[in-house]
Design a protein around this nucleic acid. Structure first.
Lengths: 222, 222
DNA sequence: ACCTGAACACCGTTCAAGT
DNA sequence: ACCTGAACACCGTTCAAGT
């Protein structure tokens, strides 16, 4: 029997198998062995289907939050959990990122993250700020890893820019070896660590001013 | 007379006016008062045209790098310049971000940024790392500002999630006021400052170890 | 309630024909 | 070299008809 869930799953599979461009209502219907119009009994439009795909992928994030752990470790773990689904559904990641979700699908991660930041001693305003900054970093990183990021940085993996004029771009030419290779794990962890430590500094500053609980003391553990 | 540049410009204008979804070869041709197939004399395909759009927007970044300024200020200025085009071409920003560029179009910003980071005292490997981290943050921030970011964070501007169950999402409900509003300028500057300061700490650590020039001394100025 | 085919108004791109 | 219309193989979605 046809239902919304089967349609969404088929869409995710098709995206991962052939890319987001390959997705069409007709293709998905064929995949499921039904007429195109049957889909519309369960999904109002293609746009709504893609929203559902985004929510579905997001809901697959596997969390294991340990409230007794140091908040810096909890932040690290949450960031990595987020990154993990992107690796599991690389081509769907772009879909997730390019859709403006309106539902509460992605709210659980937010709840967990904000709770962690509150435990770190940040007030509401700061916690939201920190979360937004963190998400910006994670989303930006995933876009690079998924291979969609603009060249101007982690230049396209492999050869590609063999033809850089050293006279016009001296530094880029000099650093070509470093620009050409990119260990995504290392790169992500580097930024993660830098952010966590920067956050710990703020948390400590708060504590030293006597505001909030001293939970965040001791800086970022390694 | 029809040429590549006129076509790209028309595409950018159409994207900004009606959104990326509205772009079709036929629409652009109509806009320019020519037959659809005329476009193919100057652009090999729609995909190539969108790549050209991305490059065009990127190349519009206005830079005024002052090598005599403190490197932290140069980083701030470059980040803001990048952000500014995204505000000028909000709907094209998603196109830029979702295309994998292969040309040297976006190489000038990279050159400038890497030169700045080298001046800060970072070695090649560190400079590239810092740049990648920075770009991740900036790209992620722009996606939020442009309104494309997944909900799970800067929940859709305005109402949208009035229906959050406080029992399921206590922290989210409590922080609703902060989640609902988002001053993009403030938010961006907050993360920018945090990153710059974190980078300054690393630069100082380098200098203290006696490596590189002491250019980065003194931490991040405000 | 669910499924469906025909039809409509669109796509991107190939090809052969024009100048 | 540049332009072009017709044609092909696709789209998403509406509608009326079936069960």
């Amino acid at each position: 029997m046809l239902n919304r869930n089967r349609i969404v799953t088929a869409a995710v599979e098709l995206i991962e198998r052939e890319g987001a461009d390959a997705v069409s209502m007709r293709r998905i219907a064929a995949e499921l062995g039904v007429g195109v119009m049957s889909l519309y009994n369960h999904v109002p439009s293609k746009a709504a289907l893609l929203d559902a795909v985004a929510e579905d992928v997001l809901s697959r994030i596997g969390f294991t939050d340990d409230p007794s752990a140091h908040w810096t470790d909890r932040v690290r773990i949450q960031a990595r959990a987020f990154r993990r689904i992107a690796h599991h559904y690389p081509r769907s990641t772009m879909v997730v990122v390019s859709r403006q979700l309106g539902s509460t699908a992605g709210l659980l991660p937010v709840e967990r993250a904000l709770a962690t930041l509150r435990d770190a001693g940040f007030d509401g305003r700061e916690a939201v700020r920190m979360l937004r900054m963190f998400i910006a970093y994670v989303v930006g990183s995933l876009l690079r890893e998924v291979g969609v990021t603009p060249t101007f940085a982690p230049v396209r993996a492999g050869a590609a820019i063999a033809d850089v004029d050293p006279a016009l771009f001296p530094v880029v030419s000099e650093l070509r070896p470093h620009l050409d290779s990119c260990d995504h794990d290392e790169e992500f962890e580097f930024g993660l660590e830098l952010l966590v430590q920067a956050m710990a500094v703020r948390a400590d500053a708060r504590a030293d001013r006597g505001t909030g609980e001293p939970t965040g003391r001791g800086g970022a553990r390694r």
